[in-house]
Each structure stands twice: as structure tokens, then as C-alpha cells.
Amino acid sequence: MTSLAGPVNQVLGEQILAGERSRSRRWRVQFMLAWLVIVAALVAFVLITINLDTQFIAKWLPFILTGVPVTIFVSFASITLAVILAVLGALGRLSVNPYVNGLASFYVSFFRGTPLLLQIVFIYFALPQMGLVLPEIPTGIIALGFNYGAYMTEVFRSGIQAVPHGQTEAALSLGMSGGTTFRRIIVPQAFRIVTPAIGNDFIAMLKDSSLVSVISVHELLYQAQVAGRPNHKSMQTLLIAAMVYWILTIAFSFFQARLERRQAVGDRSRRPGSG
């Protein structure tokens, strides 16, 4: 490069950059326009085909919204239980002890092999025959937690296995015990690997928590049905519930993206084995 080429190249570079920026801005505007058109069309369709009955909505909306904290509470409690079970399950599935491994493998197989809805009603309606009576909310949390825990067991196991073996060797060669190596070296790296999966599972959980409406947990979907059915306004109440679920998932997706960006700092451009 001669010294003369410098400024000229810089001007050209700026122009290319400006072009790229304006193209991507235009693309984003068009993208949002597409959404706007679809939403407007849907709203128009609803307004034309049904009587929206704003008075009814004003009266029942607060009632429906009382389901939101319940939904969020059940989801958080269930994902917490699921993570704990998944950690134990993953440890079990990685254990050399055949009994421990067998138990974990049975757990995963059973809870993934049967429907979640069946698990919910089983705990609520069948277990009382054995004298085990649980209230609605704990039933929902246990069913959701065990079911998601089974799926997440496999996710956690593969996350742990995805940490390069060289990490274990380096830790052991420094004199760390197996336990210290696992806690201090493997788990923090595995956790980063599985964070996106936990986030996705949480969002799925927000929606699947609606299944516990069948055992009368007063969560979002249940409240919407209670408000809608006797008044023959299910269209209104269910649409409201749908909107609220949707907003919740968008909000949590946003938090999830932020968390992942934060975690990415510190091990950017990480390649396996290159640490």
C-alpha cells in the first residue's frame, strides 16, 4: 500500500459501510411492516366477525390476569425442580455405578415415554387411591418438573460430555479431585453450553403450564375458561389468554438473549480444545 491509497480507501470503505447500513435499515422496516399488516388484518377480522364487547372485556380482564402470577409461579417452580432433577439425572446417567445409572435411565425413559397430561392427572386423580393426596399447585409443579427434568437430563448430560476431555485432564494433573474438577471446571463450562436449552425449555414450560388447568389450578388458561365459558364469550377470553402467553414468551426470549450475550463475554471465539 502506498500512502496515497490510504485516504481514498477510507472514503470508499465509509461509502460501503453507509450503503450496508441503509440496506439493513430498509430491510428491518419492511420486516416490521409485514408484521403490522398481518396483525391489522387479524384485528379487523376479529372485529368484523365477532362482537368484541369492550364492556365484557373491561369487566373480566382483571380476573383473567389473576392467572398470570400463578402461571409464572408454577413455571418458575417447575423449571427449578426440573433443573435440580436434570443435574441429578445427568450425574446418574454418567455414573459408573450400574444401579445409579439404571435408576436415572429408567426415570428418563418413563417420563419421556408417557404424556405430560397423563402424568398430571395421574398424580392428581390416581395417587389418592394410594392415600397420597396432593393439592393442585404442588401436583402441577411435580408433574411439570419431573417431565421437563427428564428431557433436560439428556441435555445436561450432553452438555457435560461436550466439555473437552483435556479440561478434565488439566484439572486432574493439577491435583484436583474428581469432585472438585466436576464442580469447578466441568459444571461452569457445561452450564454455558446448556443455558440456551434451559431458556428454550423455560419458554416451553410457560406454555405447557396451561395443561395444569385440567386439575383446576387457577392459572391463565383456567381463568380465561372460567370467564368465557358461562358467558359464551370464549373467543374473547381465549384470545386474551393467547395474547398474554405470547407477550410472556416474547419478554422471556428477550431476557434469554441478553443473558446469553452476557455469558459470551469471556470466552469469545472459543474452539473446542483451544482453551
Binding site: 483435556g166 488439566a170 484439572a171 494433573s173 461452569p188 463450562q189 483451544s274
Partner: peptide
């Protein structure tokens, strides 16, 4: 024995986190 014998690997194996 391992604390008495430090090891340096071909692939470094630093802890990325």
C-alpha cells in the same frame, strides 16, 4: 503425586471460563 508433577499439554488446556 499429581500435585508434585505439573503437566503442560500440547493443546494448552487452559480453563476458558
Amino acid at each position: 503425586l499429581r500435585t508434585d508433577a505439573g503437566m503442560v499439554f500440547q493443546e494448552f488446556n487452559l480453563f476458558p471460563h
